[in-house]
Amino acid sequence: MEEKEKNQLSRRNFLAIATGAIGAVIGVVMAVPAVAYVIGPALQRRTDENWVRLGSTSKVELGNPTLFKTIVENQTGWIVTEEEVSVYVVTEDGREYIALSNICTHLGCRVRWISDQGQYFCPCHNAAFDELGLVVTGPPPRPLDRYETKVEDDQLYILLGG
């Protein structure tokens, strides 16, 4: 009788553990994809570096920053948006090109080249950058961002993303 009771008990224990195990298996198999599903897109970085053509190098004036605009397609989720990228291109010698973002490093306003003063001027907080994008006056914490550039067949490219 006691033996039976004992058997009964250990059988119950086994069943309880087995039930728990099954629950755990199902839980894990569900949870792993579920977590990946929820946080997945948030973790995805934009990895697609690509060279974007700005235009012919002949348009760049020696010693005077030239504004180029190009449209970049941007996919967020299933929606593709078009974004305009504006770049100031500076060259001293016609061989080396420096591409500067026109976005102020302070709060993201658009800077404008004022040729009279030889400075980029940000209208938001009166910041000024020199021809190569270094801060002259105002609050910006760092120089204007630069893009990597390359020239192929007299066409100027900058590297976006990455």
Binding site: A16, T19, I22, I26
Partner: peptide, 23 residues
């Protein structure tokens, strides 16, 4: 028999089978 674990174990087994089938 008590519902837990005797009956619940059977339920769990069936659930597991169905779950595997769905996956």
């Amino acid at each position: 028999v008590p519902f837990f674990p005797d009956i619940l174990f059977k339920d769990a087994v069936i659930s597991l089978v169905i779950f595997i089938a769905l996956v």
